[in-house]
Design a protein around this nucleic acid. Structure first.
Lengths: 113, 113
DNA sequence: AATTCTTATCGTAATATTGCGATAAGAATT
DNA sequence: AATTCTTATCGCAATATTACGATAAGAATT
């Protein structure tokens, strides 16, 4: 009843869905886009770039960090967030492998689609 | 207050997050994997392959359909679900373009990570 | 030591998602 | 026409997510 059933699926399946969850919110996409394009990686600047409160952004940063997509380094009074290039490449590869699979749909046996 | 703020983000950002949401649940990944690998695309067979009730699976199918990743065709008393190859390729391309961006992190200005 | 600045965490409220059984609706069979 | 089979939808409950303000905690400055 609303309780997630992740334990019934394979590790690979759960890994992919975790990646999906990470990029399933526009704020998290926006944070990644910011880190990809901006010179700054200071937490405060990320917060300033988003239409969300500091605490909310902090939560999104935590989620991105939890999957390893970004890493935070304390820099004086600030925290500098950067994309973890290794994990970035790993995720790119995982998603790439998934979507490189060619759908059988084109030659559907039942001839229904 | 819990209310999503999608309207504050760009269309491209929301589009990507919608893709993410679609693949953010293991059941939906499993459905896609099933359609990629199996000979059958009959709804009932998909349901039988998952540890979830018929109504729950139907809901996940609806979500996948809403983003156009799969399409359902009525075939007698059954419904045949297939991956929409055009949308599949479109999404592959969108995700590919996103992850092909090279993180600036490697040359972080602030030298903090 | 007090203040200020920055960020994380806590507490809470609103909303969304997930899941199921029951039921409806449509097609095929009897 | 009644029955059966298949799938979608409804209604509801449990859980998860999203968001914010308040507050804590740590660093730098005064």
């Amino acid at each position: 009843m609303g309780k997630s059933k992740t334990e019934h699926f394979s590790e690979a399946t759960n890994e992919l869905s975790a990646i999906g969850k990470c990029i399933s919110h526009p704020a998290r996409i926006a944070i990644i886009e910011y880190l990809l394009k901006s010179e700054s990686c200071i937490c405060g600047d990320i917060v300033a770039s988003l239409p969300l409160s500091q605490s909310t952004v902090s939560q999104h940063l935590k989620e991105l960090k939890s999957i390893g997509l970004i890493k935070g380094e304390i820099s004086g009074p600030n925290v500098c967030y950067c994309i973890d290039v290794n994990q970035w490449n790993f995720i790119q590869q995982k998603l790439g492998a998934f979507f490189n699979q060619v759908p059988k749909s084109m030659e559907c046996e039942t001839d229904c689609c």
